[in-house]
Design a protein around this nucleic acid. Structure first.
Lengths: 98, 98
DNA sequence: CCTTCATTCAACCTATTGGTAGAATATGAG
DNA sequence: CTCATATTCTACCAATAGGTTGAATGAAGG
């Protein structure tokens, strides 16, 4: 599975970009059960995109600063491909920002 | 759906990076029916990652040089996130290349 | 202790995905 | 015309993903 494929998981990563958070904190914005979010977190953890630190009964999540999972490796392998197209992409996206 | 989520589709994009190709050409390397590959191509096309030009009975596919789909937009939005981590990632991946 | 809070585990359900096979369409070749 | 080639269309199927609920675990607080 590509951990980055799901929009909920991407949102979780984005949230963690602003600082660490507990499972409950991460779940709050979503219209789905805590349980479902817990599952997404586990997937991000398996993909080594996210780290877990246990503080008593709270599980504190943070971004893993050195991702080595398949997704990251793939991004690296595709970086040239995308870089070659990001100029055109940026221009096109700029037009859309009105 | 994230068009980039499937490894077959990523392989197709990679192949198209080396030049345009017909459906049959694209399907050849895969241990799956032509039909399945045709479906993948349609998904890449819907995501505007790939263009189709019809030449008689042959459908010639090529990379779309200006992707504007959700996947591309997401990559752009996440680019900062990844760029901030690509240094560590590159170092880590370099170690793996032995 | 007992209860509350934070989280996971286990079982289950449904929609989607990725694949198949076979028929249909349309172009090209003899 | 007829046949082969290139591709899609139309079911159909099995596995998986993403969600649910309810019970289990385990730490904190009165």
């Amino acid at each position: 599975m590509l951990a980055l494929a799901d929009p909920t998981r991407r949102a979780i990563l984005q949230r963690l970009g602003t600082g660490e958070a507990r499972v409950t904190d991460l779940a709050a914005p979503f219209a789905m059960s805590l349980n479902a979010v817990s599952k997404h977190i586990r997937i991000l953890e398996r993909a080594a995109l996210v780290q877990r630190r246990r503080n008593g009964r709270e599980h504190v999540l943070s971004l893993n600063p050195a991702p080595l999972d398949e997704a990251a490796a793939w991004i690296e392998s595709q970086r040239q491909f995308w870089n070659a197209r990001l100029d055109a992409l940026e221009a096109a996206l700029a037009e859309h920002e009105d």
